[in-house]
Simulated assay, not measured.
Amino acid sequence: MNFYKKTNTAIFFSSVTEIPQYIWRELQCTSNVYFHPDYLISLEENNPQVTFSYLVLINKEKQSIAFASIQIIDFPLDRIESSLNKNFYQLKCFGRRLGLFPKLKPIKLLVCGNVFVSGEHGIFIKENQNKQEVIKNIAKAISSQITTTNISIYLIKDFIKESLFITDELHDLNYYSFNVEPNMALYLDKNWSTFDAYLDAMKTKFRVKAKRALKLSNDLVVKDSSIENIKTLLPEITKLYKTVSDKAEFNLGEFNLETYLSLKKNLGENYILKTYWYHNKLVGFMSGLINNDALDAHFVGIDYAVNKELAIYQRMLYDYVQIAIHQQLKVINFGRTASEIKTSIGAVPQGLTCYVRHKKSITNKFIKHFLSYIETKPFKQQNPFKSKTLTQ
């Protein structure tokens, strides 16, 4: 435990199962699936490559007012090299010839957030709190309490523009902010009562493109997965997942797909897993989570040998849309990859900001300069709809 401004106490737990039920009742955060113990325990029990811990902030009245999910990973620094601009690449190549830039080695990275999902899924703060003060107290507690695992860097992620007036307080604690690839979000018009209504809202060019993809994928057989067939298919879907994750330019951590068993068991119909078959062969899968009025697209797997001819990935994107319309949801969060193709179905970029700090003060001073070399990949923003405004 530690005290901050003599008002808040930070309590750490090394497992979700250690957190008493009264804390969940006081926080009232479990309507958000990402802060529900059933979701958190699914991640924790199936991903031993990650060290999980949790922080609860208690006020002077001894009431729980905030929660933070913390994950510690071994992070290979060479994963971020593809996100650095050509100026850094040229500098690195020249420096290595002089022996100044050794090959980057893995480090211990502490992440306050969710290493498997984009978005604000790491920190929950109750209403009617001084959120600027709370966010600083959480950061202070993390750096002062978690000191026994050789952590080099602290990362607090991913915040939308509307939250920055709170999270920019972290600059006072020597954190530096930087932008990452945006979350691509599709906001659904309330008039889209059917998938055909969604297609009808499109400009001719994009409607033709959608119908062509649906025609190409017509021979695919799409199946909903149960706990039983997930067990049977795990080796195959893991292989398909790896084909996609290996192409990703940036991943914080590998996801153990055995987690699907727990997620399906714990979350039921709110966790979606569909498989795609062609001539009785598994050629793809998609997963997603319904969280209140949002559908969050999670991991996918694709057999790239037949992806183009069967339009597998495009079909998956349209299937997410059909699910969200059927469930009368308001938004689909597609995550950070393949931004341009997602704009063709109506998704728009939602900027995300992260905060980072090195444990050593001297090294931390160089982080700001290093961050200036990170750049997000440009993409062409397309507007597939006839109307520029949606009816919410």
Rank of each mutant, 00 (worst) to 15 (best):
G95N: 10
Q63G: 02
D74Q: 14
V50I: 15
P48A: 08
C93L: 13
K62T: 01
P76A: 04
I65F: 10
I58L: 08
S69Q: 13
S82W: 05
K86D: 15
L91K: 10
S69G: 01
I65E: 03
S64H: 04
I65Y: 07
A66F: 08
F52A: 08
L55F: 06
E81S: 10
K92E: 15
G99V: 06
Q63H: 08
N85Q: 11
F75V: 13
P76C: 04
P76V: 09
S69P: 01
I70F: 08
P48Q: 08
E81F: 14
I73S: 05
N59S: 02
Q63L: 11
F52D: 07
K92V: 05
K92M: 11
K60Q: 07
F94A: 13
F75N: 10
R96A: 09
Y89F: 09
P76L: 09
V56E: 05
D78G: 00
Q71M: 14
I72F: 07
G99S: 09
L91Q: 08
S64A: 15
K92L: 15
L57C: 01
L57P: 00
T51G: 01
P76Y: 04
K86V: 11
Y54I: 00
T51V: 07
V50A: 06
K92I: 10
Q49D: 11
L98D: 06
Y54R: 00
F75E: 12
L91V: 09
F88T: 02
I73C: 06
R97D: 15
F88G: 02
T51W: 06
F67H: 02
I58H: 04
Y89H: 10
G99C: 07
T51S: 06
A66P: 00
A66T: 02
I65H: 02
V56G: 00
Y89C: 04
L77E: 09
N85F: 11
K86Q: 14
Q49V: 01
K60W: 11
Q71R: 07
Q49F: 01
Q90G: 04
L77A: 03
S83Q: 14
V50T: 06
D78N: 14
R97I: 11
L84S: 05
E81G: 03
E81W: 06
N85S: 10
S69W: 09
P48C: 00
F88Y: 15
S64V: 05
S64I: 07
I80S: 07
I65L: 06
C93E: 15
Y89D: 14
P48K: 12
S53N: 12
V50C: 08
I80A: 08
L55K: 01
K60C: 01
K60F: 11
L91Y: 15
L98C: 13
L57H: 02
K92R: 15
Q90I: 09
I65S: 01
N59I: 07
P76T: 05
D78A: 03
E61M: 06
N59M: 06
I72Y: 06
I70S: 07
I72R: 03
Q63K: 11
R79F: 14
K62Y: 13
A68E: 03
V50D: 07
K86L: 10
I72V: 14
F75Y: 13
Q63Y: 06
